[in-house]
């Protein structure tokens, strides 16, 4: 039973849902059994959000548990620290270095930890990318999600055309060129 587990983590409002939809479409087109799980509702209001994506010949559980993720695709560096325990030994963390302050940091009740990338790099195989800068370079800060999908695509054994096709099918035509550029910037990052 060969199941690959991916977690997409971030902050509500960052566009993680589009990233998981894109990834799901790529995997279905490859003929895999796919399960996707996310939580809607309250947590989306700027809270910590997580989507589980699992694929293989036959997938049972829709969720990924601690020590099970082959990849964690993280939209925010503090969220990488929060979810790192879900990474499998030998798994890869692909993370945006962007910082979005949570309310306890804004109110001064907690400090935003320093040196997260360095600490995580000592623990696991980490690819850290400034996806916000790359998204702005592509033309919009909102394209962070597609930049990060580009980063993930580089790691996975799926041809580039399959990703581009899924992007064409998922994003509105008006933003297609921008998103293709964002994807390439992510794919070629590092």
């Amino acid at each position: 039973m060969n199941t690959t587990s991916i977690m997409i983590v971030g902050v509500g409002g960052q566009g993680t849902l589009l990233a998981s939809k894109l990834l799901g479409n790529v995997l279905i087109a490859r003929g895999y059994d796919v399960k996707l799980s996310e939580v809607h509702g309250m947590s989306q209001r700027g809270g910590s959000v997580v989507t589980y994506v699992r694929y293989g010949d036959k997938v049972y559980s829709p969720i990924v548990d601690q020590g099970e993720a082959d990849y964690i695709l993280s939209f925010e560096i503090l969220e990488s620290a929060r979810w790192i325990s879900y990474l499998k030994k030998g798994g890869k963390l692909l993370t945006n270095t962007q910082k979005t302050w949570p309310m306890p940091v804004i109110t001064g009740a907690a400090a935003y930890p320093e040196g997260i990338v360095e600490k995580l790099s000592a623990m696991a195989d980490v690819v850290a990318v400034d996806a916000l800068a790359l998204a702005e370079q592509a033309g919009s800060a909102k394209a962070v999600n597609v930049v990060l999908i580009g980063v993930l695509s580089k790691q996975m054994d799926i041809p580039e055309e399959a990703w581009l096709k899924a992007i064409e099918e998922t994003v509105p035509p008006k933003f297609l060129e921008l998103n293709k550029k964002a994807f390439q910037l992510g794919r070629n990052a590092r």
Partner: peptide
Amino acid sequence: VPGRPPVM
């Protein structure tokens, strides 16, 4: 790790 509760 500081929590990230949902906010307005």
